[in-house]
Design a binder for these strands. Structure first.
Lengths: 345, 345
DNA sequence: GTGAAACTCTGGATCGTTCCAAGCCATGGT
DNA sequence: ACCATGGCTTGGAACGATCCAGAGTTTCAC
């Protein structure tokens, strides 16, 4: 249009490539190259164009660029269901680092919402409208519906969580070895002199639950300790954690408990509170997730801390490769958690 | 182009408006109208076009639409700084409802990250590249930098948090009346028979802190109770909450404490834990924010619960109006919190 | 039966960017 | 002096949608 803009700084309509080109006295394409392939330009031309860009405060229009390149530089993330009344806010930490790492790689995160009852809801629309370049899927342990569906649509995605039910899945994934987590938690308690160490975990049909439980069993057996009468399986809620603790404390009188989640650990704390037992002195407790609750409850709950920051960064790395080479098939990455020791043990 | 696509369902390239038009035997514009202004079409034509749309699984390409209409249907939200070691994860609840409400209004949320040291970082790029239609600003109590800057750039935005330092600000905002929150918290304790009720709050230069404190003072004075020696001002951390509680419990021996945050309340709990005092029996405690920690710690901490869900919905409503009528100037909305009573009082 | 208004539908231009193929201009070997 | 070479730059076309002005069709009053 060649309509000269006053300053470009506070003007209502942002400057375009053509404006920059005119100011610098070059063609549109040269400006585009200056932005995307600076090494194609002669040094003096580049400098001139850069000056014009800075002067106008030019930023390429995202919609136009997306349209032409068929890439939005957006990564879709469906909001995990919010669980009130539990201790688990770890998604916060994950999302935070993910957004940060994605920004460094030139991607922004598109948060969307889907009907909690339908794990697929929301993906389709974004995919069809080419609104995002890829997805991050988070709740793979609830069954592989999302990943199989996305694969069938040839959508690009990475998952935080191994493909539990599809050993042949080819998408990149990152997960945390929580069997190992349960193992170091149990061994920590053994080192502290405990030998009657109970397990409070989730129902048998929870893949995650059985995974964690196996770590406890392995540690116990390695050290020649019996596990009979020491295991309990229940819902992931405070009240059922309390009920399980009540039962096991009455029956077997363990001196320490390993819980499959901080939520269950809080249930145990409720049981201890009622019995007027002192946490960390009369009974030791270890939780999972290293949630804010574990961090702040006096005297602090020892907890298995998943390396969410590292997981987020690994996922972004995988995404970059995936988007650079469409055929990219990464091996999954399994990360090891660490134990954060606090007053409860 | 008129290249016929095989099925449109699993094909790599999504169907376009032209594909639909060809299949339905109408022009592109007619399809566009079918999507955006269905009442302009004759009933039978509309049905025919709809059929074609369904058959091909057509969704308008977002980039193309954005380019032409200059609207991205994205709302920018800068990730609030993550505070580990505090009890405050309320942003989670807010963001969740916000994303949900925004989705209903046809908007998605673009999460971005900015240098924590620079409250403006990140906004500029998105604004210049016309990546978002508007922003939601959240931390207004840290000073009005973001809002004044956005206003000067003529950006559209709403804020969660009143314009503390600019009484003449014209953007829509929603906030929670936390002076009222402190008031009902204090009155709740008075009703339970307490009269020596201490306040543990933030430093004097914290606008939020003084706001909440005034509610406590008001309630105390209304009931003819003295506040001398009962107020304490400190950092928002567990350790300083504990220190403040230690000091005030030694000096004035209050029977109840109102804390400006759940984090401070947890500090108090640490102090009680050390002194072997029973929470809710020997000493009553009320917190702020109704965080997961307050919900889960035995026997539960009574806490002032901000209506984050309602706030998020109000903000989306304001956004819709703002984007519909650019000159829209809403009065701010002030919401009242409620008290969630638990075992700690 | 006729003209105008109302209703439907169409084709071309456009949003701002990148892709593509071709053009320009020095350089250098013959 | 000439043509090939390669580095830089250019104008036109395209991405997929909507805006706009106009064309075709129907409806209805006179």
């Amino acid at each position: 249009m060649a309509v000269p803009r006053s300053s470009g700084h506070i003007s209502a309509a942002p400057p375009t490539l053509a404006d920059v080109a005119e100011l610098a006295g070059v063609s549109r394409q040269t400006v585009s190259n200056a932005v995307n392939n600076p090494d194609l330009l002669r040094a003096d031309t580049l400098a001139r164009v850069q000056d014009a860009i800075d002067k106008l405060g030019y930023q390429p229009n995202r919609a136009a660029r997306s349209l032409r390149t068929r890439a939005s530089h957006l990564i879709g993330l469906r909001m995990p269901a919010l669980q009130e009344g539990t201790a688990n806010a770890m998604m916060d930490r994950f999302v935070h680092t993910f957004v940060e790492a994605a920004a460094e790689a030139g991607y922004h995160v598109l948060l969307f919402h889907g009907d909690p009852a339908d794990p697929l809801d929301g993906y389709d629309e974004l995919l069809r409208s080419t609104a995002v370049d890829a997805f991050v899927v988070t709740d793979t342990h609830l069954g592989g519906q999302q990943t199989t569906w996305l694969q069938s649509r040839r959508a690009r995605f990475v998952s935080f969580g191994r493909p539990w039910t599809q050993p042949d899945a080819k998408h990149p994934w990152v997960d945390v070895d929580l069997a190992y987590g349960a193992e170091i938690a149990t061994e920590h308690l053994i080192e502290r002199g405990h030998s009657k160490i109970a397990w409070i975990g989730w129902h048998k049909d929870s893949l995650l639950g059985e995974e964690r439980r196996s770590g406890w069993i392995h540690a116990m057996h390695t050290h020649g300790l019996s596990t009979t009468g020491l295991a309990s399986r229940t819902e992931d809620s405070i009240s059922s954690g309390k009920a399980a603790a009540d039962a096991i404390l009455d029956e077997t009188q363990p001196t320490a408990l390993v819980c499959a989640s901080d939520t269950l650990a809080m249930g145990v704390l409720h049981s201890l509170f009622e019995r007027r037992l002192r946490l960390g002195e009369d009974v030791a407790v270890v939780g999972f997730d290293d949630s804010q609750v574990a961090q702040t409850v006096p005297p602090g709950i020892t907890s298995v801390r998943p390396p969410l920051e590292e997981a987020a960064r690994e996922l972004v790395k995988a995404l970059e490769e995936l988007l650079a080479t469409p055929s990219y098939a990464a091996p999954g990455v399994m990360l090891k958690p660490a134990l954060t020791v606090r007053g409860s043990s």
